[in-house]
């Protein structure tokens, strides 16, 4: 029996716009994955601890507030500090193209901008998660 892909979908920061995160969560569920959704206004510490306790393969971060440059790398760093760098992190939301190289350098594996299809995200996860 193949392993089931487990994904944490989280919203760091202070914006409460979680429609995008919920659409993603639903699409991933419909693709047969187990999605842990932690709700809005999460700190990087809360997200990293949840990812570890749930032993997910990958974390999807959604931010529409503009704080991604600060918050996304923090999640990556805390996972690394806790010896969980094998848990991949990707992001999405309102993220300017110019910010993408910096985020990738900080260890965020992929960024999905507005207009990306849920199919793209599902494909990305299936190709990058080793289960």
């Amino acid at each position: 029996m193949p392993r089931k892909i487990r994904v944490l979908v989280a919203k760091p920061g202070l914006d409460g716009h979680d429609r995008g995160a919920k659409v993603i969560a639903r699409a991933l569920r419909d693709a047969g994955m187990e999605v842990i959704y932690t709700g809005i206004r999460q700190t990087p510490d809360q997200i990293a601890n949840a990812a570890i306790q749930e032993s997910v393969d990958i974390v999807g971060l959604s931010s529409l507030s503009g704080a991604h440059n600060n918050l996304f790398p923090k999640v990556v760093q805390i996972l690394k500090d806790k010896g969980a760098e094998d848990i991949l992190v990707f992001g999405g939301g309102i993220i300017p193209v110019d910010d993408i190289p910096g985020l990738k350098k900080a260890g965020v594996r992929e960024i999905f901008q507005p207009g990306a299809s849920t199919e793209d995200i599902i494909k990305y996860i299936r190709e990058n998660v080793k289960v």
Binding site: E34, V35, I36, Y37, T38, G39, E54
Partner: peptide, 8 residues
């Protein structure tokens, strides 16, 4: 698939 939301 499943959405696990009790953690919220």
């Amino acid at each position: 698939g499943a959405i696990l939301g009790d953690r919220i």
